[in-house]
Nucleic acid binder design. Sequence first.
DNA 1: CGAAATCTTGACCGATCTCAACTTACGTGG
DNA 2: CCACGTAAGTTGAGATCGGTCAAGATTTCG
Lengths: 238, 238
Amino acid sequence: MTKHTHVHSHSSGDGSIGSHRACVRLVPIFNHLEEQQMDEIMSVARSASFKKGETIYQAGEESTSLFIVNRGRIRIYRLSENGREQLLRILNPGDFTGELALFRSTTHESYAEAMVDTSVCLIRRDELRTLLQKYPSISIKVLQEFSKRLDETERQTARFATEKVETRLAMFLTEVAEDAEEPIEFKLPMSKKDLASYLGTTPETISRKLGQFEDEGYIRQKSGRRIEIVDLDGLLLV
Amino acid sequence: MTKHTHVHSHSSGDGSIGSHRACVRLVPIFNHLEEQQMDEIMSVARSASFKKGETIYQAGEESTSLFIVNRGRIRIYRLSENGREQLLRILNPGDFTGELALFRSTTHESYAEAMVDTSVCLIRRDELRTLLQKYPSISIKVLQEFSKRLDETERQTARFATEKVETRLAMFLTEVAEDAEEPIEFKLPMSKKDLASYLGTTPETISRKLGQFEDEGYIRQKSGRRIEIVDLDGLLLV
DNA sequence: CGAAATCTTGACCGATCTCAACTTACGTGG
DNA sequence: CCACGTAAGTTGAGATCGGTCAAGATTTCG
């Protein structure tokens, strides 16, 4: 269950200009901008930090800012009508959230929770809009980012609709494996509980299916959430 | 199965300036623009038409244009790795598609097929980009539209992940019912086969669940895909 | 080191898919 | 406008996947 303790830092806080810059520079959508634009963005960016487990925003809450992760990790999840939660994505430094409500409505549809101690940069709704009006190239960057996310989400939806849990898990593993080098071994990017939520299943099933993959010789499970892919091709055929 | 017969009309075709205007005006993202901007958009819009069953674009194909539906209906679907199709959405006049690839990659990720004889307006990739650079307000409109779609898709994903078929169907019915007036009766916006694909289930299950809802007194099925909602509250609790 | 959370494993059951046969609706061409 | 062929929809029986509950093992973190 989520702790609902809000502890925004004071707007200046440990956020020196230097750290704003670092934060803003991290974000793909603000890359490759001219110095002057960058300075302008930085002048409106504020920073805040959250302790592990703290809620950054909740569904129904008013959305006022774009959040850019500077340091740490954020879980974004939805609560379905029946109260079950689904993990939508996990944000790492450079990722951002809160944009949906900025363009569409004023309230959040999802929940954001710091998984570890986390610091973020904030850009207020109206300030962001002004920036977008002024610098069309930023808008286009944001559009690209949205396209990417929309595409990923549509792909994810299609998987839920057409693939069984076993296949979804296999696909997930092969995707994580893409970023690893030979021998293919990686640490699961989240707990199995979260993975279950992300894949729309239960921890029990994740446990069983991973065991099955191991029996079938596709993977090898090691301690500390580490997994070695032994037979990637086999896994792709699941 | 989809017929893959391409028959783009000649770019002028039946597309008089008048029809371009009508088409462009239909689109929410181009509403409320100044006359001059509107003229500029219209000057780069072309038209095309497709016969029922024709493929408008396919996954893997190069994306060159934004398609705006002028008349008719378009199914957008994905084919999953195992060859199963999932209906993503249905476009009606005023809706648009093809934007994903415009901002992200050059190839389509999904399939578009004319459900009935359909005419569309086209705006070429580079021309659209120029427009967005020139008129930031259009970008913001597109961002809003993207936000909306992203939100819908995320909601849909969360449903797949957390709700059973019965609930998804009940939710679908209540959402369609929102647009209807008392007595709540409407025509299903697609075939049950497509509805099954959209909801990630099979036609058999749709048939059975609707029958069950009828037995339980929530709905009444009539001929011609018409459905009357008898007990909306009951349906909401499913 | 110990409490709490995560993870695992087993047994059971229920929702939904599959396959197959059949009925109904629809679009096309005569 | 009707007849026919094809696609859509229905219904039943059986199989299966995956969820639920419960007990224990293991890990994590303060």
